[in-house]
Design a protein around this nucleic acid. Sequence first.
DNA 1: TCAAGATGATAATTCGTATTATCATCTTGA
DNA 2: TCAAGATGATAATACGAATTATCATCTTGA
Lengths: 361, 361
Amino acid sequence: MTIDRLADTHYQPTEKGPEVSRTRRRVTQRDIARLSGVSQATVSLVLNNRLDAGVRIAPETRERVMRAIRETGYVADPLARRLADRNNRILGVFTYEPVFPSGTRDFYHPFLVGIEENAERLCCDLLLLTSAPVQDGRRRVFADGGRIRLADGCVLLGRDIDRDDLARLIEEEIPFVSVGRRDDAGGPVPYVGADYVTASAATVRRALDAGHRDLAYIGRGEGPESYADRLRGFESAAPETARRLPAIEPGTLDRLTAEGVTAVFLEEPADVAAVSAWAAERGLRIPADLSVVALGDPTRPVSIDLDATGFTIPRRDMGLQAVEVLDALLEGTETRAQRLLPCELHDGSTLAPPSTGRLPR
Amino acid sequence: MTIDRLADTHYQPTEKGPEVSRTRRRVTQRDIARLSGVSQATVSLVLNNRLDAGVRIAPETRERVMRAIRETGYVADPLARRLADRNNRILGVFTYEPVFPSGTRDFYHPFLVGIEENAERLCCDLLLLTSAPVQDGRRRVFADGGRIRLADGCVLLGRDIDRDDLARLIEEEIPFVSVGRRDDAGGPVPYVGADYVTASAATVRRALDAGHRDLAYIGRGEGPESYADRLRGFESAAPETARRLPAIEPGTLDRLTAEGVTAVFLEEPADVAAVSAWAAERGLRIPADLSVVALGDPTRPVSIDLDATGFTIPRRDMGLQAVEVLDALLEGTETRAQRLLPCELHDGSTLAPPSTGRLPR
DNA sequence: TCAAGATGATAATTCGTATTATCATCTTGA
DNA sequence: TCAAGATGATAATACGAATTATCATCTTGA
């Protein structure tokens, strides 16, 4: 039995004009019903193998329907099915920059690996909200007239996310999860973040254990929550005497070492490259002359010969759990909508005891 | 105006049992209609900005509806729209493997850069068809029964794409474009591919110009169209005497060089690594002792010290134009639905004149 | 003053599937 | 023999949006 045969008996669109090019239609439950002489409802019941009390299908009928289904190769239209289910199974993914960057090394990639993995497990499709034009280097969540609502819910990615956007998402009750911890924005923000505080503190303790006494934190410690968290972790474990500098500028490192600093902690792991370059220029060695700790890990290795001491951000797992939380939110089974995942300390080779001349007496 | 306010007036699901947890509903046209005191039909007409003869909406009414839409942030349910045969400005992206691979270097990435770029330009969102479970290491387009129809159209990515899938896409008249040339499958396949034939032939001529006479092609020349095309290009330009070997196996290269072959052409650019390793083992130098031509370029450099001679596949542009073609197909303004983009020859450093001892007299 | 035309909005139907209430028909028991 | 229960299938409706036919109501012109 071919689909052609079905087409014969099929409804013709009022036979108007030259628009007769209606070729092959999908096989529908109606078709199956016609073929096996039952009603569409019966077909649906057979298909879903409903055995509830109150629903009874004679084995003979069931078989007849099944045969028609087999012969036509009928497959339910997922659109109609999802419409009836009231569950689109579409998860949005919003990023402030292009998801697939051409130039810079892919920042989002590791997160997306986990997101895709879990979406697949949940039988969801991912909608990349790419339609919002990038203005001033970043996309806007609501610039597109609410395209975000196309999805059942949304995962937000980005080092820093617009506060107003967050507030509006909460206000409008759009289900979403942020990858990365976020401060409240007119309400608690569901997130799956990395525990920068704990991890940063741990690296400080490690440096102290190695004998370092003069530490310096380089970074503004503000802006993205992840920056603030690193600073908080650093300060919670570092001695009062620790220095703080907002950024690496010409002379910054010279001054620090002159003042006796033996270990620098970098808020921005990418800065390892700058420190490395500075050391090379001065003929200094890392970690012999200066220990360097990256508060995190660069998306891509900064250089081949420098394995920075720091910690690993569980990016894949963050993406994975973000989808998990989002799913829970949608199902209404939310339990912990704010999660901080532990980071794994990475030994690396840029942290060593300070040179003996400076060892504490 | 919040969704809560809507919920008040809203239809209650027959008030049965504890299944009342279906709180967060989408805002529908019905809701808008209720809010602005019109019928659902009117809302639809306003939304679609219908101005046809026979359809008239008073400016005053139109404004009232628009306001409700703005205030609620209403967005049409993409599924319902698709079911009713309308478009959503959503382009599907189908890949047989995960889009975001965790292990190997991303094969799809360069294409996706172009795809995203153009999708953004066209104000389209990208739907990654990730819900189809990966079976036997690859996804099936129709394993899910056509979830693909969620999107207005679809871009297909993959070295080789299942012929049956292609045939069915054509049969069901689902708008799609393949990235990479495809043979007919029950009809012409819309594609944007790379011109492997011309590029491969060009590299052969280049080798001949350099003085090579004994060439060898390594690869099966079958399976994916891109392989067949490379072989075709090679054979169109190479002398009759050229050798062909399906793959690199132990002894393969030894035999070839012993037989006087001075230049090998690799169907699979990744094989450069194998040849390089072999040369290192034998104490031979590339290209002094053997010239190597990669028929394409590896997604990622095979090694740092070996810049293979070959050609560049315009991946980004392929992705970009694929979206362009898809859009044209959807708009019905299709002109050239089969495009072959030229590859750029890459000089590299693995092709040089054969050693003098073997130069033709 | 009244029919004809213009105007504005809606009822009804479609897409394909799922679900529930309802309706026949047939058994059974008293 | 007839009501009660079991059995099997269907009609009706919902999901959310699009579209067409239809229906009021209001202007005109003769």
